[in-house]
Design a protein around this nucleic acid. Structure first.
Lengths: 203, 203
DNA sequence: ATATCCATGTAATGCGTTACATGATTTG
DNA sequence: CAAATCATGTAACGCATTACATGGATAT
């Protein structure tokens, strides 16, 4: 049910077509909340039905229109309410940890491969998150720029700060994952002897 | 689809009834992979149908039986295969970060309340995870004890080490969450002035 | 004109959640 | 004998995923 709040949050910056929203979910917001097109379009229509957003038909080319959605007063209220309500923390479902717990059933080489992938994955993610954080802090990112234009200058600092703070959480988490992966590789070396994948120099 | 592998992993320690499995998901395994009864019983039957596990009827009281499941050779093969295959990392869907990114829409007091809950939640979890890690390292936990009995002594070290390592990942992650929450509270103080909830001593 | 973007979906399936439901057995 | 535990589900619903599908508009 958070998809709808992600959409509402997006729409507080500027009106968007479904396609615009899909684009956002491919980039910025998508780093925090993933959603495919097939979920976004129907959700927007449902939200319009409930009065949280309003669609207006905009000319697009000579023979066509597109729907541009804006958030309504009720939409803002719903977003606020959601932000102020306590989140029910979802029970854990952690594939990486589950797999690691049973590494004795995989070969050491495949356990290593697993951890290397873990490290690579989070290294890449951390890179992205750091870039996003920078783009937010410098107000370069188009969607943050549009947002700042819409709100008075005294709000800018906090708008930026909270978004950067969110990314800092992702970065910290990612770095913890990388650390964990490295300790895992060391652990495997201790338990099973060092990897045979690399030759000993000087032997 | 990981539920079935969690079940297979459990069954490598000892045969279990559905109810036993449900119990495990309420405790040990449940800290890593959550599943409700309503998912476990049907999944066990499906797995039996696919030959990954075998159910045998065991007397239970004078007029009743229960089904005790054991892992089959094919089940072990399936578990190994899953452990050795690369995990497709699921796209992110992070409610805490999403909410934090839009804290300017909540009041400062409700943003603080949010972060306090975040800190409390992870503090509690970290406590549990640390206890579990200890219980594993000392081989006190009943399910780890049963497991160790079944495998030769030279396997014990790695069986324990990998499970402890998994919990260490959770602990590290939890601690990063707590840290993040604290920095968030500081950030709110900076942006909005300190909380009015507490009086200034000496004023 | 052709490729790439812009725009918008439907359909099938599966995993997971919540709520509801029942009865036997052991333990105190 | 009453309470707690053991045992095993069904049913309805909703969110999410994957695959499939189409056509107009703009840029080169």
């Amino acid at each position: 049910m958070s998809l709808r709040y992600a959409l509402l949050a997006l729409l507080t910056a500027e009106p968007l077509t479904g396609y615009d929203a899909v684009k956002r979910f491919g980039g910025s917001v998508g780093y925090v909340w993933h959603a495919p097109d097939s979920q976004i379009y129907p959700e927007l229509r449902r939200m319009e039905g409930e009065g949280l957003i309003e669609g207006e038909q905009v000319r697009w080319g000579p023979n066509s229109t597109k729907t541009r959605y804006s958030i309504t007063g009720e939409g803002v209220r719903a977003l606020r309410e959601w932000l102020e309500a306590p989140i029910p923390y979802a029970p854990l479902r952690d594939v990486s940890r589950m797999r690691a717990a049973y590494f004795e059933w995989a070969g050491p080489e495949s356990a290593r491969e697993n951890l290397r992938r873990h490290i690579d994955y989070y290294t890449e993610q951390v890179g992205r998150w750091k870039d996003m954080r920078q783009a937010i802090l410098s107000a370069e990112h188009p969607s943050i720029a549009a947002r700042l234009e819409k709100y008075p200058a005294e709000e800018h600092e906090r708008i930026i700060a909270y978004k950067a703070f969110a990314y800092e959480g992702l970065i910290a988490r990612g770095e913890a994952e990388i650390e964990w992966g490295r300790r895992g590789l060391d652990l495997i070396d201790e338990l099973e002897g060092p990897s045979q994948a690399r030759g000993e120099p000087g032997s």
